[in-house]
Deep mutational scan, measured.
Amino acid sequence: EESQDIKALQKELEQFAKLLKQKRITLGYTQADVGLTLGVLFGKVFSQTTICRFEALQLSFKNMCKLRPLLQKWVEEAD
């Protein structure tokens, strides 16, 4: 059922947002740094506010889903 899928996805997004924040802090990056690095990787800079709202799960579900693969890549590249 679709609502189950969405619930599962939301849970996954929550966990990912936590992971992103932990990783960012561990590596000593600011939210603005992450936004700028996305610009380098994908040619589209994201504001500190956007990263902040992603981490706080304050973006729309659709936006969270759109941003996630980009931030996933950041997490992979950041090591």
Rank of each mutant, 00 (worst) to 15 (best):
E1V: 05
E1C: 11
E2K: 09
S3C: 03
S3G: 14
S3F: 10
Q4C: 08
Q4Y: 15
Q4A: 10
D5V: 12
D5R: 11
D5Q: 03
D5E: 06
D5N: 13
I6L: 09
I6G: 10
I6P: 12
I6Y: 15
K7D: 13
K7T: 09
A8P: 15
A8V: 13
L9N: 10
L9Y: 09
L9H: 08
L9G: 10
L9R: 12
L9P: 14
Q10E: 06
Q10P: 08
Q10H: 07
Q10N: 10
K11L: 09
K11D: 14
K11Y: 13
E12I: 10
E12M: 06
E12H: 11
L13F: 09
L13E: 04
L13P: 07
L13R: 00
L13N: 08
L13A: 03
E14V: 13
E14Y: 13
Q15W: 05
Q15C: 08
Q15G: 12
Q15H: 08
Q15R: 09
Q15D: 13
F16Y: 05
F16E: 05
A17P: 06
A17S: 04
K18R: 08
L19G: 11
L19M: 14
L19T: 04
L20W: 01
L20N: 12
L20T: 02
L20C: 10
L20F: 15
K21V: 06
K21R: 09
K21E: 00
Q22V: 07
Q22F: 15
Q22A: 09
K23R: 13
K23G: 09
I25E: 08
T26Q: 10
T26L: 12
T26S: 15
T26G: 13
L27K: 07
G28D: 01
G28F: 00
Y29G: 03
Y29Q: 13
Y29E: 06
Y29C: 02
T30S: 13
T30V: 05
T30A: 02
Q31M: 02
Q31V: 02
Q31G: 05
A32G: 08
A32S: 10
A32W: 02
A32K: 14
D33H: 03
D33P: 08
V34C: 00
V34D: 05
V34S: 01
G35S: 14
G35F: 03
G35W: 01
L36S: 13
L36H: 15
L36G: 07
L36Q: 15
T37L: 07
T37D: 15
T37C: 01
T37P: 02
L38P: 02
G39E: 04
G39A: 03
G39T: 03
G39M: 00
V40S: 11
V40N: 12
L41A: 02
L41P: 03
L41N: 04
L41W: 12
F42P: 02
F42A: 12
F42Q: 00
F42M: 03
F42L: 04
G43S: 02
G43A: 07
G43H: 02
G43L: 02
K44Q: 12
K44E: 12
K44Y: 04
K44S: 01
K44W: 00
V45H: 12
V45L: 06
V45A: 14
V45M: 10
F46Q: 14
F46I: 13
S47R: 04
S47L: 01
S47G: 04
S47F: 10
Q48F: 06
T49H: 13
T49M: 07
T49A: 12
T49F: 05
T50S: 03
T50F: 15
T50C: 07
T50A: 07
T50Q: 05
I51A: 00
I51G: 08
I51K: 11
C52L: 11
C52K: 15
C52N: 14
C52Y: 03
C52W: 07
R53S: 04
R53Q: 11
F54N: 03
E55W: 03
A56C: 10
A56G: 11
L57K: 05
L57W: 06
L57F: 13
L57H: 15
L57S: 07
L57D: 04
L57P: 12
Q58V: 04
Q58R: 07
L59V: 02
L59Q: 00
L59M: 11
L59H: 04
L59P: 07
S60W: 06
S60C: 05
S60N: 01
S60K: 01
S60M: 02
F61W: 11
F61E: 01
F61C: 05
F61I: 14
F61V: 12
F61G: 04
K62H: 09
K62V: 08
K62F: 10
N63H: 09
N63L: 06
N63D: 10
N63Q: 08
N63S: 15
N63T: 07
N63K: 14
M64V: 02
M64E: 01
M64I: 00
C65T: 05
C65V: 09
C65G: 02
C65E: 05
K66G: 09
K66D: 04
K66T: 09
K66Q: 11
L67D: 03
L67W: 00
R68E: 05
P69Q: 02
P69W: 00
P69S: 04
P69E: 02
P69T: 02
L70A: 12
L70T: 07
L70W: 05
L71M: 08
L71V: 01
Q72H: 11
Q72G: 07
Q72A: 06
Q72W: 01
K73P: 04
K73F: 03
K73I: 05
W74T: 11
W74C: 04
W74V: 08
W74Y: 01
W74H: 13
W74G: 09
V75R: 02
V75H: 11
V75K: 11
V75F: 15
V75D: 05
E76T: 07
E76W: 05
E76P: 00
E76K: 10
E76Q: 09
E76R: 07
E77H: 14
E77W: 14
E77P: 08
E77A: 10
A78Q: 13
D79Q: 10
D79N: 07
